[in-house]
Amino acid sequence: MAEYVQRSCESMIKELEVLRRIKLFSDDEINRIIVVRKHMESKIHNVSKSLDDFKSYISYEKLLLKKIHQRQNERGISEKKGWLDNRILFRITRLYQTAVQRFRSDYSFYVEFFKFCRKHKLNSAASQAVDIIIKMFSHKPEVWILAAKWYWHLKDANRALKTLQKGFTIHKQSIDLYNKAIKLELDQLSEADSDVRSIQEQLCVVKIKTYVSLILRNITDLGDILSTLKIVQDHEILKETQEEISRHVFQNYTMDGHLLPPFEEQVRALEEGG
Rank of each mutant, 00 (worst) to 15 (best):
F263P: 12
H139A: 10
E244A: 10
Q266I: 15
T163P: 03
L177W: 00
D256A: 15
S190D: 12
I58H: 11
Q173E: 06
I68L: 06
Y96Q: 01
I92H: 07
R118I: 08
V143R: 02
S26W: 04
P261E: 12
E15S: 09
N73I: 08
K166T: 11
R159D: 01
L229S: 12
I58W: 09
N158V: 01
R104F: 10
W150A: 02
W83V: 07
Q251L: 15
S108R: 05
S8F: 12
K43Q: 13
D52I: 12
V35C: 15
I225E: 00
D28S: 15
W150Q: 08
L164A: 00
V232F: 03
V47E: 11
I225N: 00
S227L: 01
L84W: 07
V36A: 07
R102N: 14
S56H: 14
D256E: 15
L270T: 14
E185P: 01
D27A: 14
F250A: 15
K162N: 06
R32F: 09
Q188S: 13
R87S: 11
D27G: 08
L84Y: 02
K62P: 10
Q242V: 08
F116C: 04
S56Q: 06
N158G: 08
S127W: 06
D176I: 03
E201Y: 02
L164Q: 00
A129M: 08
L177I: 07
Y211Q: 00
D156P: 00
E244V: 10
M255R: 14
S127F: 02
I133K: 00
Y107P: 00
I175T: 05
L186T: 02
F250P: 13
L186N: 01
F116T: 10
E3Y: 11
I170C: 14
G274W: 12
E61F: 08
L270K: 08
S59D: 15
Y253E: 14
H39R: 13
M12I: 15
S11E: 06
K14W: 15
D256P: 14
Q266K: 11
A269P: 06
E272K: 02
K43H: 13
G167L: 02
R75P: 05
I231T: 01
D187C: 10
G273M: 13
K209A: 09
Y211F: 01
E185K: 04
E271D: 10
N179R: 13
L65N: 12
F114E: 05
K162E: 09
K166Q: 10
A99H: 09
I13F: 15
L189C: 05
K121F: 07
K172G: 03
V143N: 00
C9G: 10
S8E: 14
F116N: 06
E3L: 12
G273C: 13
Q233I: 04
R87K: 13
A99V: 01
K140D: 05
R32W: 11
Y4P: 01
A99W: 03
I134F: 05
P261I: 09
L154V: 02
V249D: 07
V35G: 11
G223K: 12
